[in-house]
């Protein structure tokens, strides 16, 4: 930083007012920059460096190159868990895209005309997003409890006993149920974002289409949706980043091991068990391998974000 400052000094002439202001600017930026560097940026990059090391507990000091990554992808000890977590995380994300964001788009569309009670509905839909993920997860484990939970009690009382399942106890069922719980919590986010996007669609355009006899369905797909494309992009990328990093909801509803039988194990729970808690019964974390799992997550996120930037830039040129 000081180097850049020096060269600018020479260009601007020595010690003029502008120069003093530049020192002031650095002073303004320094506290934020230091905290951000020390507790976020450097740990992120240093974690990538640690993924090239191995060692017991808190001392990953032996350099092994890409061995941790090779083990993750090929060693039978790791491969199954790792690919299972990638697959589960992808399913978790896809369910959010399909259910949460489609519902959000629907709700936003219903909420966009002005009518009585609109504010109230918007407030209610958004409510769970202010709660802790952990509280929501625990609450739903009680509601979904096979013997005492409200869902199965209701199902049995209306004569649908065969549908009163052990929701969180069956492989193949637990992951979709957990994803839906999370979608229930977060659906307010896409709703509000799409609603803000719909507010920018000029009312005259919709009126003109209505006069021409277009149905609401046609108006949605031919006018509103194309104008919403940038918002669709932002909602998608936020859903992607949030869900490829999800941990709390699975921890609350299925434990750190992603029960039953690792069928709800996400990248973040695998990361937690490997790099932080340590696998039972040893309980010693494998930090290098943990860093490698974080590294893979990092590259998946980067790829997604770059794809989004590329697509949204190309989309902007088209207009």
């Amino acid at each position: 930083m000081s180097q850049a400052n020096d060269s600018q000094k020479r260009k601007a002439g020595v010690f003029d007012v502008k120069d003093r202001r530049q020192t002031t600017w650095i002073f303004f930026l320094l506290p934020a920059l230091l905290v951000y560097l020390i507790f976020m940026a450097i740990p992120l990059f240093d974690s990538l460096r640690l993924s090239l090391y191995t060692g017991k507990g808190y001392t990953p000091t032996t350099f092994v190159g890409f061995q941790n990554y090779i083990d993750l992808f090929t060693n039978p000890l790791w491969r199954e868990r790792f690919f299972g977590a990638v697959k589960n995380t992808t399913i978790f994300f896809m369910i959010h895209m399909l259910v949460q964001n489609t519902l959000g788009l629907l709700f936003a569309n219903l909420l966009s005309p002005n009518f009585k009670g609109r504010e109230l509905f918007r407030t209610i839909i958004f409510t769970p997003a202010t709660l802790s993920v952990l509280v929501v997860g625990f609450l739903w484990t009680l509601i979904l409890n096979p013997n005492w939970g409200a869902i199965n009690k209701i199902l049995i009382s209306v004569g649908l006993k065969q549908f009163a399942l052990p929701w969180l106890g069956r492989e193949g069922l637990a992951l979709p149920i957990i994803s839906l719980t999370s979608a229930w919590q977060w659906v307010g986010m896409p709703t509000v974002m799409f609603l803000a996007g719909l507010m920018n669609v000029p009312e005259e355009l919709l009126e003109a289409a209505r006069i021409d006899g277009a149905s609401e369905w046609e108006i949605f797909w031919k006018i509103k949706f194309p104008l919403l494309k940038p918002v669709v992009g932002i909602v998608s990328i936020l859903t992607f980043v949030d869900n490829f990093n999800a941990f709390d909801v699975v921890y609350a509803m299925a434990g750190a091991k992603g029960e039953p039988g690792y069928s709800t194990d996400l990248l973040a729970t695998l990361f937690y068990r490997t790099g932080i808690a340590g696998e039972h019964p040893v309980g010693i974390p494998n930090m290098g391998m943990g860093a490698a799992i974080a590294g893979v997550t990092f590259f998946i996120l980067m790829a997604g974000v770059l794809l989004w930037l590329y697509l949204s830039r190309r989309g902007a040129e088209d207009v």
Partner: peptide, 26 residues
């Protein structure tokens, strides 16, 4: 300052949790 702005907001897309291993040591 342009560079620092981008450097700061890049953090919107990268969760700090991924740096946890190093934060534990720090």
């Amino acid at each position: 300052s342009n560079f620092l702005y981008i450097f700061f907001i890049a953090g919107l897309m990268i969760p700090i949790r991924l740096g946890t291993i190093d934060l534990v040591r720090l």
